[in-house]
Design a protein around this nucleic acid. Structure first.
Lengths: 292, 292
DNA sequence: TCTATTATTGCGTATAACGAAATATAAGTC
DNA sequence: GACTTATATTTCGTTATACGCAATAATAGA
């Protein structure tokens, strides 16, 4: 009976699904199945009633669940106690951010943190920007670098680290199939937009305010891909300025001087409010410099 | 961090000695050293201050110790809860007894228990009779089959299962070097006695009451060996009747009709009183038939 | 009946744990 | 002061354990 297994048990009790629980625990379903079986043998009771189609906690499983939660809480308390005594925080925190964000912000954020808390390990996961906030909400990550949505989901804490204007960009050599190279933006202009996310919402609203519908040429996941497609001449795109600054294709596109300009991207760090009780999370949070 | 490691930690905290703690935990010193180191890494603090000559708990170790004790207690509570629910006791209990006792009593004691509680595993350790009670006191074993000492150490519970007379035995063909084969018992009679234990104490007292000192030819560990040596003609021995009955050499020795006879051996099962709170221990204890 | 879903099991492999012996180090001894 | 003793730790080779993949089984839905 070790702590990892308790966590796995709790995951399974929450999801009642071996596949999803194992994924959340970063192990294979077979490993989870064996873990649970071992737990049941050590506890001496069947903890889950399960057949090939359903998983349910037995009454004994319910008892075990409260035990498991208590046990983990006590382990956390112990670690907090010990850390307070030694005065040096240690452990690990996880962070999610887009590739672009990792280029732009990570160094500044992490270098000082690393200096102050050398024993805290940081697990960094990169990917598309869109799922960032959800990964924090689901508990997969402690932090994420993300654009602040217009309405912040409840329970989330957000701290700005930078403002970056949302820019309309066009290919320097003109849009394929269009004769004019002038920066015209109307319902005939093919647009390359994010599939979703804050940038997309801003663009949609912008067009609505202009009383016209955008001609969407392509919907793309990932701001870098937008720059690529714009650079290839497929249309006009919208990306945050930071993305452009970090793009190797920056000099192949030009920024359009459109008014009214889009409300700027507010980039920051999000975490669950309740996690701020943990000393590690709070330490990281506290040393972030709010740039706004 | 698993439960085995917590037990090992507690052992080390109790003994403050890697060698003894590892022996008590049934692992090698090296394994214990690594376990503790791993625990320290997971806890993020140094738990023991140690050099090659001494081991001491750090303040963090003290905190960890209370955590470890609580944690184990909760695990026990959980298991008790679960067992009460399912109604079937399971787990394991350990028992120590001499080889002779295993021949004579074990079957009767265990066969019914096995039937009533098939899921309780019994770990049986056999060896010399003398250390039996100490192994219970030290916590190495849950139970021991042992002779009841004249004064029972406090904290110990004893339940008799049999009375067996202590017999003087002599070789049938006479004692080597003595011409008479008569059953004389005086300070010229070479005696084969236990090194220690209840039987030895009784014999010593018997001789004192006869106002004579025994001529001790050999002190032997293990009643079986006494029978062997008597059988070979080295002298007169004292063994419990049960031992004789189970000895393949029984017909090579004869029982002397000595008066006053020795106070009989009272064989029974001992356990720590405080262990009787555990449901497993109590179940075993309850089904023992007191034969006295 | 067939298909899709999903917990479990077999199996080969990678990882971790173990014990024995070697090592290091400090205290006691002559 | 060299030598012995005691004892925690490290090294090393072996063994056991845990894991992932793929196969299996079993069930609900089409």
């Amino acid at each position: 009976m070790d702590i990892k297994q308790l966590r796995q048990f709790i995951q399974l009790a929450d999801t009642l699904h071996f596949g999803r629980a194992s994924e959340a625990s970063h192990i294979s379903p077979s490993a989870l199945s064996r873990s649970i079986k071992q737990l049941e043998e050590e506890a001496g009771s069947c903890l889950f009633e399960r057949d090939n189609r359903s998983v349910a906690l037995t009454p004994e499983g319910e008892i075990f669940l409260t035990y498991a939660r208590d046990s983990l809480a006590q382990w956390d308390t112990l670690r907090t106690q010990l850390m307070e005594r030694t005065g040096e925080l240690q452990g690990e925190i996880s962070m999610y951010c887009s590739v672009t964000a990792s280029y732009s912000f990570l160094f500044n954020i992490l270098s000082e943190f690393r200096r102050n808390y050398p024993k805290i390990e940081i697990k960094l996961h990169t990917g598309d920007p869109d799922p960032a906030i959800n990964r924090v909400i689901s508990g997969d990550e402690d932090f994420a670098i993300a654009a602040k949505p217009d309405t912040l989901p409840t329970g989330l804490a957000f701290k700005s680290i930078a403002l970056s204007p949302l820019l309309f960009i066009a290919p320097k050599q003109g849009i394929e199939g269009k004769h004019s190279t002038l920066p015209i933006l109307d319902d005939k202009t093919p647009m390359i937009l994010s599939e979703e996310g804050v940038a997309r919402k801003r663009v949609d609203r912008w067009f609505k305010e202009q009383n016209c519908k955008p001609l969407i040429y392509a919907q793309v996941a990932g701001n870098e891909a937008i720059v690529s497609m714009v650079s290839l001449g497929f249309g006009v795109g919208v990306v945050p300025k930071i993305v452009l600054e970090n793009s190797p294709l920056a000099n192949t596109v030009e920024v359009l001087d459109i008014t009214p300009s889009l409300k700027p991207y507010e980039v920051g760090i999000v975490t669950l409010e309740k996690k701020l009780k943990s000393p590690l999370i709070r330490a990281f949070w506290a040393q972030l410099k709010s740039e706004l």
